[in-house]
Design a protein around this nucleic acid. Structure first.
Length: 188
DNA sequence: CCCTGATTCGC
DNA sequence: GCGAATCAGG
């Protein structure tokens, strides 16, 4: 029962903010949820925005910074951390569906990362923030959306789905088997 | 192949 | 008004 998503004032406002902030249409679409990048672009134009067309296409400022090196932040995660995260997930999201609304207001400023000498709860702050989430990345929410520690799984998502294989299994379970499988799938 | 925004046009 | 399909490009 997917509540039909439409351009409510809040969503339009968020769209405006993110677009003017230099976010790409696909990123915005992923954050809004329920819409494709085409929908976002179409809306942007209808709103009279779209002043993004400088030389060629994309805004170099926003695209300038790229992580590179690591294909997927998750792949680089030590198993131990992954386990910790899974454990946290169990506690944070016992049974609620991952279909939460991203936010009334928006996110969390960048979590300050010290030199690397402080191992303070790295486990939870290691995944991807909403800013680095791309359409091809797993959107499984981890943690409380109202806290700065909120992250998304970020693993390579299955084409056509918003989640990676692991989380898709958890997300799309038949109601009848949920009780039995959640524990299994949830614990990797 | 990955991605970007722009435009068209049926609904 | 909406957004998929398509176009044009990096």
């Amino acid at each position: 029962m997917e509540a039909v998503v439409s351009w409510t004032d809040e969503r339009v406002e968020l769209l405006r903010r993110l677009w003017e902030d230099g976010q790409s249409a696909s990123k915005i679409a992923a954050q809004l949820g329920g819409v494709t990048r085409n929908a976002v672009i179409g809306k942007v134009h209808r709103l009279g925005l779209g002043g993004r067309a400088r030389s060629g296409t994309e805004a170099p400022a926003a695209a300038a910074r790229k992580p590179t090196a690591v294909a997927s932040p998750v792949d680089a995660l030590p198993e131990a951390e992954a386990v910790v995260i899974e454990a946290a997930l169990e506690t944070a999201e016992p049974t609620s569906p991952p279909n939460h609304r991203p936010a009334p207001d928006f996110p969390p400023p960048p979590a300050p990362l010290p030199a690397a000498a402080e191992p303070v709860q790295i486990a939870v702050s290691q995944r991807v923030t909403i800013m680095d989430l791309r359409e091809s990345m797993c959107r499984w929410p981890m943690g409380d959306p109202t806290t700065p520690e909120f992250r998304f799984c970020g693993a390579r998502s299955i084409t056509g789905l918003p989640y990676c294989g692991h989380h898709a299994q958890i997300a799309y379970q038949p109601a009848t088997e949920r009780k039995r499988d959640r524990r299994v799938a949830g614990f990797r």
